[in-house]
Structure formats: C-alpha cells, structure tokens
Amino acid sequence: MLKINHIAKTFNPGTITEKKALLDVDLHLNEGDFVTVIGGNGAGKSTTLNAVAGTFLVDKGSIEIGGVDVTRLPEYKRAKYLGRVFQDPMTGTAATMTIEENMALAYRRGKPRTLRWGVTSAEKKQYRDALAMLELGLEDRMSSKVGLLSGGQRQALTLLMATLQKPMLLLLDEHTAALDPKTAEKVLTLTRKLIRENNLTAMMVTHNMKDALQYGNRTVMLHEGRIIIDIDRETKARLTVEDLLKMFKTASGSGLTNDRMLLSQ
C-alpha cells in the first residue's frame, strides 16, 4: 500500500541552518497495516509523514502509494490518496467556515470542484449521521463555524473528515499531543474505531510510548533520520515501555531525548 524507498531530505542545504532531517528512511506498509511511529526530538517522525503527504519533495529515493509513484507530485495532488490529521487542532479545519462546509470540502477530496452547489441537502443527512457517531453533539451544530469548537472537537472532526472519503493511507501526526489527557484518550479511541471499521492503512506518530505499543500492529522507531527499530505485532504484544527504552538504547547507542516522551512516562 505504501512504499517509502530510501528517502533522504536536507532542509536549507549549504546554509547555516542546514538540517539533515532524513538520511535514509525505508518503510513498506501492507494494506490494513496500522503503524505507530516513535522517536526522539528531531528524529524525523513528522518529516517522514510530511514527505509522504508531499509538504516538500524529497532529495533522494521514491514514494509509492497504492502502486502510484507520487515522489514528484505536489501536495494537493497526493491528497486524493491521503487522509491527514495534524498536531495542531487549528490546522485540519477552516475556522471561518461551518461544520458542514468543512465536511463538504473533505467529501470532495480528490474530485474536481465544479460549479455545482457546494453542500447538497442529501449529503447533509450523511454528515449528520457521521457526526452523531462522535457523540459530541456536533450533529445539531452543523451550520456553526468550526472556530467555535474546542480543540478536541476540532480534532475529532478532522479525523472524521479524513475518513469521509476512504483514504488509501491515513496520516496521523501526533494528533492528540495538543489535547488534555481525557480528550486525547477519546480521540485515540475514535481513531482506532475508524481505522477498524473502514479497514484503513495508517501511520500514527506519537510521543507516548504506551500508546505506541497499545495501538496498531507494528511500531517503528526513528533516530537521526533513520529507522532503527521495526517491531511486528507479536513482539509488540510482549513488550513493555521499559523494554522499548532498552531496545532504543542498544540500537542507537544513546539515551532517548524526547522531553515530552520522558514527561509522559
């Protein structure tokens, strides 16, 4: 479903702010895989996700989604294959537009946008049912501006929007990091539910080691722009957070440096 073939990326090459973000990332995902991605500060977790999403073009290597080579495609053209949820709840939705307008935008992902009416009454009914599933009462506020929603509500909505058109790949970039623990838990449960029900292939970056082990069928750990650990479902089931930290130390030759990760222990 996803083939990341030895990609590399250096930001601002040849300048004082040069940053070798990805050295050699190689990762293949099968259909239905749910991979959690962990790693220290600046390991390249989000950069890997953004490389797949097309926020920037990679310097080396290639990326295939569902058999299509997307390496040179701009971000907006890759969107038809991807559902995305961002770390910042403000990023995934348009604050000045209504809930139903936001959903209608997501519903048309990967389709030509014509001069037909932007939100039809038939689809409104569909959105209402989908929103009701969130159990946040949003189905009764469909013509409210998204800017009036809380961070957790916006993140839940973004998640729903990402799966409204079944994506080949769902990219979750620390999408619960900005939420309070209780809301984060809710959004994670919803994430799992949506992935299971739609049988989605997904990549989830997280700083929470416990979540990384608890969710998904595979975990990869990045360090200095490379994948240093790749754990399958069976191994995951047996591992504890302490085991994972030990594995990291052996594989990287250093301690783990992720402030948020350590704080969340």
Binding site: K80, M97, L105, R113
Partner: peptide, 20 residues
C-alpha cells in the same frame, strides 16, 4: 463547490491542500 474551495484557500491553506 469551487467557490467553497476559494473560501477555504483564504481560511486555511494547509487544510485546503490536504483536501486536494
């Protein structure tokens, strides 16, 4: 549909690109 995409472009570019 197209007009909505213009409004979205003004409201949130990152989101708009993520929606194609």
């Amino acid at each position: 549909e197209y007009g909505c995409s213009l409004r979205a472009t003004g409201a949130n570019q990152a989101m708009s690109r993520a929606q194609g």
